[in-house]
Nucleic acid binder design. Structure first.
Length: 723
DNA sequence: TCTTTGTAGCTTTTT
DNA sequence: GCTACAAAGA
């Protein structure tokens, strides 16, 4: 017990041992957030305030949930099974599986991931004969998801114009289609389980009585619906003395909120304070990760944001090294310099795994990769294709899904002609129409196809029926193996040139099933029913946990990733690259409400990843969308205290080894202005000319005004002066 | 059915 | 400039 609380600092201790009440813990970067969360759970249980079954802990990622479980297992002698610990989606899935009837879902409902959802929407638009130029599927998907994230059903959605009312019609049809197929998308998992609890009084009472402590990680990332879900479960506003509200313990950091673009609502933090009448907020401000200069820089940066809850990180680790700022003259030069620097660091004994190269956008990794590759430096890029996203895996899963639920049209459409079995576009379309006319699934339409039982489509239906009956009694791994062998997938990939990797991945899928089954066997708690090792649970697992990005992390390798994916990680040495106006902060952010602030938080996250040494690099010239762009240094560089920085540069006046790219030095129009030149505009201020077109009266130049964004201006009107 | 050609887009991402 | 995905040809 005392062990549990040893080594906690005062605010951490206060948070962990808070009496039963609602709480918001503002946990700065590197302040021991996860530790507080897990120790809180361990403390509550070991002091007998609540049993494991009374705990509900929610995270956003499977990784975080796993981490929490591992740490808890190390802290507590008792088993952790009675607790509900998982992601929002994982827990909702569990809830819906347990009460599928009440939720209006079939027992074996399937989960659509983002790619499946997009495919489903495309199919829908086709069936409805909607012009997919005017209503791009991706945009529609975003429209639907955004509504679900707000808790808004199609029936409640507001149409402010013709265009939107059409989109709402599509939303209505999409809901209908999903219901008919027995599938739910990610947003639906949340919304459906919210509605289930809201409508079903006894069920709500049951869970309210059970979960006395609800703990939330990364609270700043919750969207409207997730917050509403939490309030509902916690029994917020309940006046029933027999069912008092559960304690909501939320941990988060408003300064690290970087997911507004996918619906995260920072306002939830203030709402939480107000609605739960929190007397005070506990702040964890002592940072155990970074050295002083790095923290000072981070603090100075984030101070520029308005409306913060307020927090200042400090450390007793000492100032450490200055922050190195490097101005390169091109993206290639930037990458080369970084590679040189890495070589030196490695020579000095720094582990390559402790070196991270961060960038704003994935496209930036290419130049870096190229230089690393050329120099023979091992590296690992995070964020590529994930295991369950591979096409061969998706195909295999589609067969499995059809066995479980033949009405799953997305799965049907995916494999009806894969491997090819002579079902071309015309027969597929005919089937589509038949299904639409009969308002039934493709599978049902195929099964009822008049007459010709010898047709290819009928053969496909029989194949699925056969697979289902043949595998009915097989254990999961053998089942999957059987399907891979008898669906024709193995045969197909055997005959393909690069099929070997794919076959290995399919074998890996069988492995994954073996692991899944053995995990399920050790977790035979009655509450773990969602993980009972059956096929449908495995499929849910596959949808909810996309698996590792990349298998080979064997080598000692430099880590490359976007700033977003670096959140939660830390490294001895961090390079933040591409610190240029328009890139970081990204130009699209300028148009969005509070866009710059979100970019600044992103920068804050990036800076606070570094433990000992931080490099900030930018280039004067960058190849973007096939064009050379001339860029101003990021405003974020100016927001850092100069005394913390150590600047060096190979740009600005120094002779250039490789020179300016040929042909890019043309003048803009006949005005004598050059691309790359800084100019002043009366309204927009100072910017850099990045492109030009036309001549004479028609001459226009594109100018990067940084915060002011990118503008095309007519030379005859703009009155630009050199700056 | 497979291959070739064309064109749109191109910030971040977990579930 | 490159990639991904869709429509058109062999």
């Amino acid at each position: 017990m005392s062990d549990l609380l040893a080594h906690l600092n005062a605010p951490q201790l206060a948070a962990v041992t808070l009496p039963p009440q609602h709480a918001l813990i503002l946990a700065g970067a590197g302040s021991g957030k996860t530790r507080v969360l897990t120790t809180r759970i361990a403390w509550l249980i070991s002091t007998g305030q609540v049993g494991p079954a009374g705990i509900l802990a929610v995270t956003f990622t499977n990784k975080a949930a796993k981490e929490m479980l591992t740490r808890l297992a190390a802290m507590l002698p008792i088993n952790t099974r009675g607790m509900w610990i998982g992601t929002f989606h994982g827990l909702c899935n569990r809830l819906l599986r347990a009460h599928h009837r009440e939720a209006g879902l079939p027992a074996e409902f399937q989960i659509l991931d983002a790619a499946d959802q997009l495919a489903a929407i495309k199919r829908l638009l086709k069936a409805l004969a909607v012009d997919d130029q005017k209503y791009p599927p991706r945009e529609l998907m975003h429209f639907i998801n955004a509504h679900k994230e707000q808790g808004i059903r199609a029936a409640q959605a507001e149409a402010y114009d013709r265009y939107t009312s059409r989109r709402i019609e599509c939303y209505v049809e999409y809901e209908r289609q999903c219901q008919r197929e027995g599938v739910v998308d990610f947003g639906e998992l949340l919304l459906r389980s919210y509605e289930l609890l809201q409508r079903n009084e006894p069920l709500r009472q049951h869970y309210r009585a059970r979960f006395r402590h609800i703990l939330v990680d990364e609270f700043q990332d919750t969207n409207r619906l997730q917050y509403a879900w939490l309030k509902l479960l916690a029994g917020h506003g309940s006046t029933d003395p027999d069912a008092p509200a559960a304690c909501l313990f939320a941990v988060g950091d408003d300064d690290q909120s970087i997911y507004a673009f996918r619906g995260a609502e920072i306002g939830n933090m203030r709402d939480l304070q107000r609605e739960f009448e929190l007397a005070s907020v506990i702040r964890l401000e002592q940072n155990y990760r970074s050295q002083g200069n790095i923290l000072d820089a981070a603090n100075a940066l984030i101070r520029q944001n308005r409306g913060r809850l307020g927090k200042n990180l400090w450390t007793d680790a000492g100032a450490g090294e200055p922050i190195r700022v490097y101005a390169a003259f091109s993206d290639t030069d930037e990458a080369r310099r970084i590679v040189d620097e890495i070589a030196e660091l490695v020579r000095d004994g720094v582990s390559r795994q402790q070196i991270a190269l961060l960038y704003r956008a994935n496209a930036q990794s290419r130049v870096l990769e190229h230089q690393l590759f050329t120099a023979g430096v091992p590296y690992r890029v995070h964020g590529g294709l994930r295991f369950f996203d591979r096409q061969e895996i998706r195909h295999a899963l589609a067969y499995l899904r059809l066995i479980v639920n033949p009405d799953d049209d997305t799965a049907f459409a995916r494999v009806v002609n894969f491997p090819t079995r002579g079902i071309g576009t015309r027969s597929a379309e005919a089937l589509q129409e038949a299904a639409h006319a009969a308002q039934c699934s493709l599978y049902a339409a195929a099964a009822n196809l008049p007459g010709k039982s010898g047709s290819t489509i009928a053969r496909f239906v029989r194949l699925i029926e056969q697979l289902r009956s043949e595998t009915a009694t097989l254990p999961l791994p053998e089942l999957i193996e059987h399907v891979i062998d008898h669906s024709g997938l193995r045969q197909h990939y055997l005959g393909e040139r690069d099929g070997q990797d794919r076959l290995e991945n399919l074998d890996e899928l069988v492995n994954a099933a073996t692991v899944f089954v053995s995990d399920a066997a050790t977790a035979t708690d009655e509450n773990e029913r969602s993980d009972d090792g059956r096929l449908s649970s495995f499929l849910a697992h596959a949808s909810l946990e996309a698996g590792e990005h990349q298998a080979g992390d064997d080598q000692e390798a430099v880590q490359l990733m976007t700033v977003h994916s670096a959140k939660g990680l830390e490294f001895d040495v961090v390079f933040i690259t591409g610190l240029e106006q328009g890139l970081f902060p990204h130009e699209n952010a300028a148009q969005e409400r509070d866009g710059i602030e979100e970019e600044r938080r992103l920068m804050y996250v990036a800076v606070t990843r570094a433990r000992r040494r931080l490099y900030l690099t930018h280039a004067e010239t960058r190849l973007l969308h096939g064009q050379t762009r001339y860029c101003l240094p990021s405003v974020f560089l100016d927001e850092l205290p100069a005394e913390l920085l150590q600047r060096s540069s190979r740009a600005s006046g120094t002779p250039r080894a490789t020179g300016t790219p040929a042909g890019k030095q043309q003048t803009a129009g006949d005005s004598g202005l050059r691309i790359g030149q800084s100019v002043r505009h009366a309204r927009f201020g100072v910017g850099v000319i990045v492109a030009s077109e036309g001549a004479g009266e028609q001459a226009r130049v594109q100018i990067n005004f940084g915060n002011g964004g990118m503008k095309w201006l007519a030379l005859s009107l703009a009155r630009l002066t050199p700056a």
